[in-house]
């Protein structure tokens, strides 16, 4: 079943073309990875799909319904959730209050046993009463994911979920994310090849706002063009 279908999406900021005629297609249950050098439009793609930006061109269907023109909160209510490239939690509130906030307007909130179980799985239970701003980056990253999971999204878009983490933490996050695949469909932007190679069922490559490749990770990561454009220019 097609979950996400973005067609011919184009986004310009003044003279800067951040996305040009990008097509993205994702099946339910399929993990889609997005790679591309810095500034290639990956975050912009997420911003467009989740209603934070209005593209000049294109159409986005989610679960069969058009998304463009809808507000971010409506898109969240439709079951499409996203995280941010730089971690974003309510740092003055406690972990517990952060979770409660995520549950406020969730259309299908996870029942409380489910919340407890998920928090336990993410290892956050001991930190429930700590101020979110006092958590480590790795804990904040997991809290971000927890706040999305209690809403039971159909699709979770993760923007560089291992950015800034140590290599041991990256390892642990990869394990968490592969378990996460059983809970919801994942769309993941990553810089680190390792993450994409281990997690993604399919990869798309963005370069300067254009999709230059789309296919299984093994094939894409050995593609000469990708290696030139991407591995040649970025430390991966």
């Amino acid at each position: 079943m097609t979950l996400l279908d973005a067609k011919l999406v184009s986004m310009r900021f003044g003279g800067v073309v951040a996305l040009s005629d990008v097509n993205v297609h994702q099946e339910a249950g399929e993990t889609l990875g997005v790679i591309g050098p810095n500034g290639s439009g990956k975050t912009t793609l997420v911003n467009v799909i989740t209603g934070h930006l209005t593209p000049q061109n294109g159409a986005v269907l989610f679960d069969g319904a058009p998304l463009l023109g809808r507000k971010p909160f409506q898109i969240a209510a439709a079951g499409l959730s996203r995280t941010y490239q730089s971690v974003r939690v309510f740092s003055e509130l406690t972990t517990r209050e952060n979770i409660a906030t995520a549950l406020l307007d969730a259309p299908r909130p996870l029942p409380s046993e489910g919340v407890a179980e998920t928090a336990e799985w993410l290892g956050l239970t001991p930190r429930f009463d700590a101020r979110a701003g006092s958590l480590t980056l790795y804990e904040q990253r997991r809290l971000e994911i927890l706040m999305r999971l209690v809403q039971q999204p159909k699709l979770l878009m993760l923007d560089e979920p291992v950015g800034g983490l140590s290599s041991a933490e990256v390892r642990a996050t990869i394990n968490l994310l592969s378990e996460l695949k059983a809970r919801c469909t994942i769309f993941v932007i990553e810089h680190t090849m390792k993450v994409i190679r281990e997690l993604a069922d399919r990869v798309i490559v963005l370069v300067a706002g254009e999709k230059i490749a789309d296919g299984p990770p093994a094939e894409i990561l050995s593609d000469q063009r990708v290696i030139e454009k991407y591995l040649g220019s970025v430390d991966a």
Binding site: T50, H52, K71, P72, F73, A76, A77, S81, R82, Y84, R88, V89, F90, S91, E92, L93, T101, A102, L104, D105, A106, P107, M147, Q151
Partner: peptide, 14 residues
């Protein structure tokens, strides 16, 4: 939630 971070609040469906 809006006071602390309105963008995040909106992303969470508020």
């Amino acid at each position: 939630a809006i006071r602390e971070d309105d963008g995040l609040a909106e992303t969470l469906g508020i």
